[in-house]
Amino acid sequence: MRVVIAEDAAVLRELMAQMLAERGHEVCAAVGDAQALRAAVAEHRPDVTVVDIRMPPTHTDEGLRAAIGIRRDHPGTGVLLFSQHVETRYATRLLAQGSAGVGYLLKDRVADVAEFVDALHRVGGGGTALDPEVVTQLAGANRHTDELTALTQREREVLSLMAEGRSNSSIAAALTVSPGTVEKHVAAVFGKLGLPPSEDHNRRVLAVIRHLQS
């Protein structure tokens, strides 16, 4: 993949760049602010960009605003947001444009290299990669809705894993159940939420995330 990294912490920025280069990916640019990020994406047209939410000069939402602009102006570029803490309002603003080619991870996930690279591959390929804690807090913010209260505990677990971007086989492995059991839970989730089931992975994640935002 061709990657642009935007992270104001120089050590973390260089660590990610080295880690990706060692695994055969091309790091087109590694920058420290949102303005440089926009310029790098316009110049290199990468497959995916890793974006810190809080960057200079105000360290508030410069990265988020740049990410939203990138998704609007360069729809073929995936965006993986990085944050020190879960900030559901920022996740919601990004996901409002759709979940295809979008990710949101906590920074400590970089320590698990395989998990980080897998998330980057998913986002770069047009999929979704959401930190489990992000999914939990998005769902928790809406846990009093009639639709969500209708779900069983196991169906909630399946819903959270679906929203992370996992396949049915991955969910089955995580929950130590059969793929057939997962398929039944998925069908029950969509039925109770009033959402039509689909074999298309990105569409089903989009449907789940939009429900969590509602």
Rank of each mutant, 00 (worst) to 15 (best):
L37T: 08
A163G: 14
H201N: 10
L175H: 03
R143S: 12
L212G: 11
L20G: 02
L161E: 12
R210P: 05
A129E: 05
D33C: 14
V117F: 02
P56Y: 06
M19P: 03
G76V: 05
L95P: 01
D33H: 10
R109S: 05
G78Q: 09
A29F: 03
L106R: 15
N202L: 11
G98M: 07
V113Q: 15
V27Y: 01
P57G: 02
C28A: 15
T92E: 15
R45G: 05
A188H: 09
L206R: 09
G24E: 12
D47Y: 03
E26C: 14
D61I: 08
L175A: 11
A111S: 13
D131W: 02
I5V: 12
A163R: 01
P197N: 10
I53C: 04
T60M: 09
A119H: 00
S160I: 00
G63L: 02
A207T: 05
L195V: 15
E87D: 14
D118N: 12
T88Y: 02
L148Q: 01
D118P: 02
H44W: 10
R122Q: 12
V205S: 08
I53G: 04
R166T: 04
A163N: 03
L106D: 08
P57M: 11
D118C: 07
G125A: 11
A96R: 13
Q84I: 07
I5N: 06
H121E: 15
I5C: 08
L148S: 03
I209A: 14
Q137G: 02
E155L: 09
L120H: 06
T152K: 02
T176R: 13
S170H: 06
H59I: 00
A30N: 02
A207H: 06
R203P: 00
I68P: 01
T136D: 06
